[in-house]
Amino acid sequence: MERLDKILAKSGYGTRKEVKHLIKEGRVELAGEVITDVGFKISLQSIKQISVDGYEVEIHNSLIFMLNKPAGFITALSDTRHDTIAELIPRKWQNKGLVAIGRLDKDTEGLLLLTNDGQLSHRICSPKWGIEKEYHLITQGRPFDQQDIERFAQGFKTLDGTEFKPAKLKLVDGFEACLTVREGQYHQVKRMAKATGREVKYLRRIRIANLQLDPDLAPGEIRMLTEDERVELYSACQLED
């Protein structure tokens, strides 16, 4: 038997204090019966019968969130000099052991995943597993052309000896493109662009594996992944949820 408030808190419904308020307000049900006892305990077999505000509770061992990171925030949970993504995480989801999966530069926008699943984070970040990350970029300098598509597809080595593995470049126009990479080197997209004669003026991550940035998620907003998104992401990483 386990306390209901503890189960809901672990599932991302808030702090223990906030979850107790949910229960007291009569917003939590078990098999259709309203539960108002904050000390109520349930068996593991009954967990799938819990609902909050009429919606079935999805119980997982891990938490995964999608953040639409705006420019101006660094990918860190604490810093004395800069705004951090921690400021964008609602209080009810703080202190859950969340870490960012990879990082986005301060001036880079878009899809950033946060989780307390270390194995999932490692799979997505490790070049060994080749998980795709897609970026939308706008550049200045030399315009992109067919030769760039071929060069990126083959991979290349820069003058300083840095080697970039094959990547997929899809042109929007001469100065705008989408680039898909399977590794996560430091400032990789910007360095690949610079090595081919151009400077990145705007950069936004739009996809990780088969998970697209939610177009309805405004910059600075965060939400939990849906059940379908979780299944697809774990499957892409060859892991079980």
Rank of each mutant, 00 (worst) to 15 (best):
L113Y: 09
W129F: 15
C125H: 01
A100F: 06
E132Y: 01
E134K: 07
G102L: 06
S126M: 11
P127Y: 00
D105P: 04
D117W: 06
G102I: 01
L113M: 10
N95E: 15
D107Q: 14
L114Q: 11
R103E: 03
G118D: 13
N95I: 05
I124K: 01
L113H: 09
K133A: 07
T115L: 05
K106M: 14
S126Q: 00
R123M: 08
I124D: 06
G97M: 08
D105H: 01
C125M: 15
W129M: 00
L112F: 11
C125I: 12
W129Q: 05
E109M: 11
I131T: 08
L112V: 07
P127C: 06
I131H: 14
R123N: 02
E132L: 05
K133D: 12
Q119M: 14
L111D: 10
K106I: 15
L114I: 02
R123F: 09
A100W: 00
L98N: 05
E132R: 04
I124L: 13
C125V: 14
I124E: 00
L113K: 09
E132C: 03
I124G: 02
I124Q: 02
D107R: 13
L114Y: 11
G102M: 12
L120H: 12
G97V: 10
R123A: 03
G110A: 11
L111M: 05
N116D: 13
E132K: 13
H122R: 14
K133T: 09
K96H: 15
G130T: 04
L104K: 09
G118A: 07
K128S: 08
P127Q: 02
E132P: 09
I101Q: 00
D107P: 07
V99M: 12
T115A: 12
R103Q: 13
D117H: 01
W129Y: 15
K96S: 09
H122N: 15
E134S: 11
L98E: 13
K96F: 11
K106R: 15
G97P: 14
L98P: 12
I101F: 07
R123V: 14
E109Y: 11
H122L: 01
L98Q: 11
N116Q: 03
E134A: 03
C125R: 01
S121E: 00
D105N: 06
I124V: 15
L98R: 06
E132W: 00
C125T: 14
L104W: 00
D107L: 15
I131S: 06
E132T: 08
N116F: 04
E132Q: 09
Q119P: 00
I131F: 02
Q94N: 07
H122W: 09
C125D: 11
P127D: 11
R103C: 09
N95V: 04
L120W: 08
G118I: 04
L104G: 05
I124P: 05
G110W: 10
I131C: 04
L98S: 08
L112Q: 12
I131E: 00
P127T: 03
L120S: 02
G102W: 08
G110T: 08
L98Y: 12
N116M: 00
